[in-house]
Amino acid sequence: MSGNGNAAATAEENSPKMRVIRVGTRKSQLARIQTDSVVATLKASYPGLQFEIIAMSTTGDKILDTALSKIGEKSLFTKELEHALEKNEVDLVVHSLKDLPTVLPPGFTIGAICKRENPHDAVVFHPKFVGKTLETLPEKSVVGTSSLRRAAQLQRKFPHLEFRSIRGNLNTRLRKLDEQQEFSAIILATAGLQRMGWHNRVGQILHPEECMYAVGQGALGVEVRAKDQDILDLVGVLHDPETLLRCIAERAFLRHLEGGCSVPVAVHTAMKDGQLYLTGGVWSLDGSDSIQETMQATIHVPAQHEDGPEDDPQLVGITARNIPRGPQLAAQNLGISLANLLLSKGAKNILDVARQLNDAH
């Protein structure tokens, strides 16, 4: 009898209710805020589980004197976190989706994509230029951005401005803007500013005609071990179906173009009346040469937790077992079709030249 009692006690200790789920994140304040929001949602869904947040620095956090596009290494903000995932030191990792490459290392998958916040870019102005827009900034004003995508589009749109690289986390960039006289304004992701509670610093939100956004911008991705079915089931509740389908289309477009950090590629997606609209573009580094096109596809946005595919093969690095396969494939095909259209119009040449120029500098 006593033996059975011990077995029952052991089973209770090993039951999922007692389990601590370890969540990996970057150390920056924004990353911690984003991770806290994901953990809060998981806690609400699984009140019996405990969650421990483990923060670590990544290569991208450490190399702050070089433009991201020049470092010449993929997975700048993800490699150390993936290493911890691989060694079973954490069970899942919360990322900004735009930091996750469209091809993940073997053994990993994006197990959830959370509801997207505003994906557009924002302009934050130096205190002396508050009330201005990019259009009304004085001639030769210097605007800071760490992104080739932003610089290429904005140089084309605002030729009277000069664009220079600015690195560091959000706090560091804002301090550089406010305390030094080098920059009249800087460009940042609206979602990051909003998550930090800095709505009052948003001086201008850039519309798609001015600057399309990065693939996955404004959404959070939760990376897990691809074979860890328990954790895949656990994080599945975080999937937002519309965000998922938009981001599958965007990531398929980028992957098929073979774009990345070192080339200016941008997108804009919208879901309306059962249609998914995808606009994508590529630019030369100075913005003088560009190709942009829009395509659409009829896609039914499923309700969360309709029964999805059981075999769960990944699409552009994403596993969404609780979302039907048909809409996911339709979104992926839309991204591939748009990429093929741009490639047929000469996108590869623009991107190759951009890559060579970026590598040469």
Rank of each mutant, 00 (worst) to 15 (best):
Q181I: 07
H199R: 11
P159G: 09
L42K: 02
A44T: 12
G192D: 03
V93M: 09
T109R: 00
M271Y: 15
L244K: 00
L351Y: 11
L193E: 03
P47T: 12
R173L: 03
L342G: 05
K74F: 08
D311Y: 07
T35H: 00
L315Q: 03
I299A: 12
L100M: 09
Q204V: 12
G221K: 00
T190W: 14
S288F: 10
P313Y: 15
A339Y: 04
L342S: 07
L68V: 12
L232F: 12
L161G: 04
D230T: 00
R175S: 12
L234M: 06
N322V: 11
G168C: 02
N200I: 13
G72A: 10
L278K: 01
G60N: 07
L30A: 02
V130T: 08
L276R: 03
P241S: 14
T133M: 12
A270G: 06
I53C: 07
S337G: 11
P208R: 12
L278V: 06
V39W: 06
V237H: 00
E52I: 13
T319H: 15
G72E: 12
E80V: 07
K176T: 11
V267L: 11
T279S: 10
V143K: 04
L174H: 08
T145E: 01
R251Q: 00
R164L: 10
T35V: 09
Y213Q: 06
K157G: 12
A303M: 04
Q229R: 12
T41H: 12
A252L: 03
E89G: 08
S96L: 01
I71H: 08
H199G: 10
T269Q: 02
L64F: 09
L334Y: 05
R195S: 04
L134P: 04
R251I: 03
Q275P: 08
I323A: 03
K227Y: 15
I318D: 04
A214I: 04
L341T: 14
R164N: 11
P208H: 11
E89Q: 14
L338F: 02
A40T: 11
K115V: 09
A303P: 05
L220I: 01
I71A: 00
N200Q: 00
T172E: 02
A185V: 07
F125E: 07
I33F: 06
V123W: 01
E250H: 02
C261M: 01
F51S: 06
L148M: 14
L343K: 05
E89D: 12
F158L: 11
P138W: 05
V93Y: 03
P159S: 08
Q314S: 06
Q194S: 04
R22I: 14
R26M: 00
D230K: 09
L244N: 05
Y213E: 14
S28V: 02
A84E: 07
S284I: 15
I231S: 10
I231L: 04
E179Y: 10
L161Y: 12
Q332H: 15
P47W: 05
A151G: 12
T25Y: 01
I186Y: 03
A84L: 07
L42H: 01
T133A: 07
K74C: 05
D61C: 00
A122Q: 05
E209R: 09
A151T: 08
E135V: 14
D352M: 09
K79Y: 12
H83F: 11
D289S: 11
E52H: 05
I33H: 07
V143W: 03
C211K: 00
P101D: 02
G216K: 00
I336D: 00
R22G: 08
H256S: 12
Q181R: 14
D65Y: 09
